Computed example of a mutant assay.
Amino acid sequence: MKTDYLIIGCGASSLSFLDTMLVETDATFVIVDKRDAPGGHWNDAYPFVRLHQPSRYYGVASRPLGRDRINDGGPNAGLFELASGTEVLAYFHALMEEVYLPSGRVTWLPMTEWREDDGVVRNVMTGEKTRLDVQRAVVDGRRIGTEIPLTYNRRFQVDEYVACIPPNDLPRHAAGRSAFVVIGAGKTAMDSVLWLLRHKIDPENITWVRPRDAWLVNRLRAQPGIEFFDDMFGGVARQMEILAEVEDFEQLAKALETEGIWLRIDKTYTPEMMHMAVASEGEIEALARVKNVVRMGHVQQIEVGRMVLQEGEVAIPQDALIIDCAASAAAANVTDRAPVFSAG
């Protein structure tokens, strides 16, 4: 089989490349992915996941995601819609079926892997190999290296009698539980806590392990649309002024919070990092209701009624449901300095 470009992975990065190249070149493409459907890690996402920024910011250049609706209820009220994981998968599926395959220039090979050493594509089901003659370049769309709670390699030990689940299983296992422990400080953990609160779980019955708190971007300051011009561009202009005025990160964070550009969940605790997660003020207000926060480093081991962390241990209810949200969004590429676009 001959192709101009071999694309490894069928997630957002790969499809964004494909989408632009289909318009700007007459090249041909083969896409390989071990998963069965387009969408990359979204295929393994938990059922209540949503984008944390407006839908308009996500997807590919040729087709908008969502309908530019303003939410009229919930913690995102008054702001642009946030696509659900189901909507994102449907979006990528439609692009493949309605745009890419009908072009006649795209060959999509699900349940396959690229064997670089011998230049073949291998079907992971049958083992059948197809030799590829790549004319231009191999494009690796897996560079972000996103860890997924469902599939990552857990970094702490769990006693066999402890119920420890990824957030994917939360809707199936939460009913009838009286206590919950959420492990992680990122967006997935925030989503899981908000899901519990939305389903009327008393905040006192939630223990939240946050090894490091983070500063968060106020979603009001990250809105598209002319109606948010002052909030968005005024916020950007004010950030530039603040950056010129402050002398260190502590002053920067304090000033950005005062301007309503950055948010934090606990106003009595100063975060030491910023990973650009985005939240609404309504979400922050809800999350702040959880007061049983454990800040003793990363979890090392969980036993019935006991959790061991880097800096000590804490007692937990013996029947607690543990929700593991400790996967790191970009852990695999933090020290990767290879260029995205290599020579040629």
Rank of each mutant, 00 (worst) to 15 (best):
residue 187 K to S: 03
residue 234 G to P: 02
residue 209 V to Q: 00
residue 81 E to I: 07
residue 325 C to H: 01
residue 268 T to R: 08
residue 257 E to F: 04
residue 259 E to D: 15
residue 67 R to F: 13
residue 207 T to F: 08
residue 51 L to H: 05
residue 55 S to L: 11
residue 19 D to R: 04
residue 28 T to Q: 06
residue 285 E to K: 10
residue 114 W to E: 05
residue 131 R to I: 09
residue 243 L to T: 02
residue 304 V to H: 09
residue 96 M to I: 02
residue 252 L to F: 05
residue 192 S to Q: 01
residue 208 W to S: 02
residue 43 N to M: 15
residue 272 E to A: 15
residue 231 D to C: 13
residue 75 P to E: 09
residue 12 A to L: 11
residue 104 G to V: 08
residue 171 P to Q: 06
residue 150 L to E: 14
residue 161 Y to T: 11
residue 322 I to R: 00
residue 247 E to N: 12
residue 265 I to M: 09
residue 276 M to F: 12
residue 295 R to A: 15
residue 301 Q to Y: 08
residue 140 D to Q: 02
residue 215 W to K: 01
residue 188 T to E: 01
residue 196 L to Q: 00
residue 310 Q to N: 14
residue 79 L to R: 01
residue 304 V to G: 13
residue 79 L to N: 01
residue 127 G to C: 14
residue 150 L to M: 13
residue 95 L to Y: 02
residue 226 I to K: 10
residue 17 F to G: 04
residue 43 N to S: 15
residue 231 D to I: 07
residue 262 W to A: 02
residue 104 G to F: 07
residue 267 K to M: 11
residue 129 K to Y: 07
residue 74 G to Y: 05
residue 209 V to M: 05
residue 279 A to V: 05
residue 217 V to K: 00
residue 184 G to A: 12
residue 292 N to M: 05
residue 54 P to K: 05
residue 198 R to Y: 09
residue 29 F to T: 01
residue 14 S to V: 01
residue 184 G to T: 03
residue 337 R to G: 14
residue 88 V to M: 11
residue 307 M to Q: 04
residue 315 A to G: 14
